[in-house]
């Protein structure tokens, strides 16, 4: 994961338990950038499309790195689905003594998926390779940690 996204995700993951701390059940969805569809970049034809055409249509990429005799640009989006249920929450209302003892029984899961469009551009500014890695299906709300 590129460095800026890593930092943003670290912030979100740090916040997530705080957001859900007040209720016994919580569904939290986190997205970074809007997901891309194959139709969005269908115009890119390796060997023909220029780097300028790519940036004119798709905007600035999230990351630009040096490539073999050119550059590598990445556009990414991430999706995360977090579910948590505290099955012991009801004991708060059963007995005041029980409420003071540790009684949380959490279950749930966090699925994170990412889509990454990679565009390789040569020294002449022509796209030589396009790759789309689709992983957003990994982001789903799991009730039990054993699901999958």
């Amino acid at each position: 994961m590129p460095a800026p996204a890593r930092l943003a995700f670290a912030l979100v993951l740090a916040l997530a338990p705080l957001l859900g701390a007040c209720t016994p059940i919580v569904w939290t969805r986190t997205t970074i950038n809007q997901p891309m569809k194959p139709a969005d970049f269908a115009f890119i034809s390796p060997g023909q499309t220029t780097w300028r055409e790519v940036t004119d249509r798709l905007g600035a990429p999230n990351v630009i790195d040096p490539g073999p005799g050119g550059l590598i640009a990445r556009y990414f989006s991430y999706d995360s689905a977090y579910f948590d249920a505290d099955l012991g929450y009801g004991l708060n209302y059963v007995n005041p003594i029980l409420a003071q003892l540790p009684h949380s029984l959490d279950t749930g899961g966090n699925g994170i998926g990412g889509d990454i469009l990679t565009v390789v551009v040569n020294h002449a500014g022509i796209v030589t390779l396009v790759s789309f890695s689709k992983g957003d299906k990994t982001a789903r709300f799991d009730v039990l940690p054993t699901e999958h």
């Binding site: 979100v12 859900g20 969805r29 986190t30 997205t31 950038n33 809007q34 990429p61 999230n62």
Partner: peptide
């Protein structure tokens, strides 16, 4: 980052501007 919570449901949306 923009976050909204209503009762049990939360959503966090993040996006970047790059130059």
């Amino acid at each position: 980052l923009k976050h909204g919570t209503v009762l049990l449901f939360s959503r966090i949306n993040i996006a970047s501007d790059d130059i």
